[in-house]
Nucleic acid binder design. Structure first.
Lengths: 336, 336
DNA sequence: ATAGGTTGTCGAAGCGCTTCGATACCGGCC
DNA sequence: GGCCGGTATCGAAGCGCTTCGACAACCTAT
């Protein structure tokens, strides 16, 4: 393994000079710089990460805590993770992958050991037990998701409240008066991850303003659960003509069941999904949807974090504006 | 930040003693050990990762290279990644997440800088450009997937050849004579990731032995592509009664289309999927399937790697035996 | 010509840990 | 009683890098 000292010797300069060439923290004459750079090339030098971290107290690593459980939409998680890794590299950071398994201990471990310079937390619960630790530590962090109390924290998330409102508005504009919300599995609500509730709140309050009736039903994924849920919905509200689905594994079952019951989409009922673009595009009916901008979320989280690490001011809470794309699953209510 | 020296002072011993308490590399008297451990507790000491890495030349980090592209089944990737992270922690390692974006350079960077002690590579192509580097370096590595030449490499993968064979056997046993294989998107074959070809090879050779006719069609995901593909299949081989699907985004479309055409599953046609358990369970028909053991693959990869790091002998290639679970989508051929 | 400011380079200290002798102590044995 | 082999502990060196202060060389402005 080639060391700084070897590079220095090869280039005929001192070790500190090589270091300054690398970091650019002091001015170096053009000639010296070139000689050093050529030596680095020729010897195939790579600075030793451990030594660097020790000397500078910076690891150039960002820790990313992903949820261990896989009951929620996994591709979104993966896309965020990949966006985080990619964006981090652009800013010169690597990403350490932590699972939620260790829980708060992971925060202590990473903070205490100087393994990472900063953290990104996914799947944040409303009253997350990791938050007090985060507030105590002086290690910068960004949450993807929104806890109940955001004071002193930086958060990035889709504006789910506005998302809910946007869905209602679209359906209202098309003339629908009674809508049903197919939500995430009950477990998601019980866990208080927040995003599902926020969607619902935004949706309900806008519906109230616009005079629409809303029926909300949590729903496990899969056909059987969806069949039962749908039956109960039409039982209770036979006049339902609009659906908002926030559970990707319920989308396809819903479409199949509606088809089976002879209800045409979008002629008889309209369906809006809150899901990644890919799901909306690949469904049996191209879905009108509000996209979950996973990539953007990952990217923004890293950018916020890097800003903090550079000592720049950052927004406390970044809520991404939802965008609704009209496709083939929603249409005007044609009397009925 | 608390240091080793502070712990030593607090416990009234020398720094090296504390170090030996931590590492267990020399015997320590019970009394001393307890005093030191109490001091560690009280002061909330965490060893500094950088210093440790520098002094010991071991980072206790495993690098995991995930593919950047997301055209393949992402949940499998995620599940593997999580299994890798979880298993690594059990063995005292953390996981660094690298995307394929940097390509071979990432291997050089990580190897050269001592950032990680070892690597796991996912999405390995038959003639992967990272392999020469891996062979050159003395850094241990494990591949998830199987390249063309495995000499000098350790690999973990599902035995896709046996998987293909297993599918044919099951269909043959049920009396099917003409089967169609719905494969991955053409791009997957062009990339030569290998697993798709291996499945096909295993399937074809067993089919030959058992006297079945096989028609293979790559297929993009989604309804439109599947509709076109299915039409061509029945056009060319009207007597097709068995399907093997190795493309999770084609599964649901296939089932819907068959239903639509009045072909009952499993009475008229049988369908076997090669997919994660969850997909098989959540489909509109509970699918007979060969599971892709993502978790097991991640776990085994780490275990192989740790064995190597510990200087233990390891298998060169670990092929996991496929398991076929019979559910509701396959049945005996009832004349026709 | 000289004081004062730049610019480019060097040497040395030190980051927090591991690890290798060296040392001190203990009990048992011939 | 001196010697041996363990066992428990310490001190010091060193891992490869960053960074600070020093300094030489040069350039201006007086």
């Amino acid at each position: 393994m080639v060391t700084l000292a070897e590079v220095a010797q090869h280039a005929g300069v001192s070790a500190s000079t090589v270091s300054y060439v690398l970091s650019g923290k002091r001015s170096i004459s053009a000639g010296t710089r070139q000689r050093v750079e050529r030596s680095i090339q020729e010897l195939g030098y790579h600075p030793n990460a451990g030594a660097r971290a020790l000397a500078s107290s910076k690891s150039n690593i960002i820790a990313l805590m992903v949820p261990l459980r896989t009951d929620m939409y996994v591709p979104v998680m993966m896309e965020i993770a990949i966006a985080v890794a990619t964006t981090a590299r652009i800013h010169g950071y690597d990403v350490l992958l932590l699972t939620g398994e260790e829980g708060p201990d992971a925060v202590r471990r990473v903070t205490g050991s100087g393994l990472a310079d900063a953290m990104i937390l996914m799947d944040v619960e409303l009253d997350d037990e990791r938050l007090p630790l985060l507030r105590d530590t002086d290690q910068p962090s960004v949450l993807i998701g929104l806890p109940a109390d955001t004071s002193g924290l930086t958060c990035v998330d889709l504006d789910f409240g506005a998302t809910g409102a946007l869905c209602v508005e679209h359906l209202a504009m098309l003339g629908h008066r009674e809508i049903a919300v197919i939500g995430e599995a009950p477990a998601v609500y019980e866990r208080h991850t927040g995003f599902a509730e926020r969607t619902l709140d935004g949706l309900r309050s806008r519906a109230r303003e616009l005079g629409l009736r809303v029926l909300h039903r949590p729903c496990e994924g899969g056909y059987d659960a969806m069949a039962a849920t749908l039956a109960r919905i039409f039982d209770e509200r036979p006049g339902t003509t609009g659906f908002v689905v926030q559970n990707e594994s319920a989308v396809e079952p819903l479409l199949a069941l509606l088809r089976q019951q002879g209800r045409a989409v979008p002629e008889d009922v309209s369906v809006i999904a809150v899901c990644p673009e890919q799901v909306a595009m690949q469904a049996s009916v191209r879905l009108t949807s509000v996209a979950i901008p996973a990539q953007e979320m990952g990217r923004r989280a890293v950018e916020q974090l890097v800003a903090k690490l550079d000592g720049r001011e950052t927004d406390e809470v970044v809520l991404l504006a939802p965008e609704l794309t009209v496709r083939a699953s929603t249409g005007p209510l044609t009397g009925g």
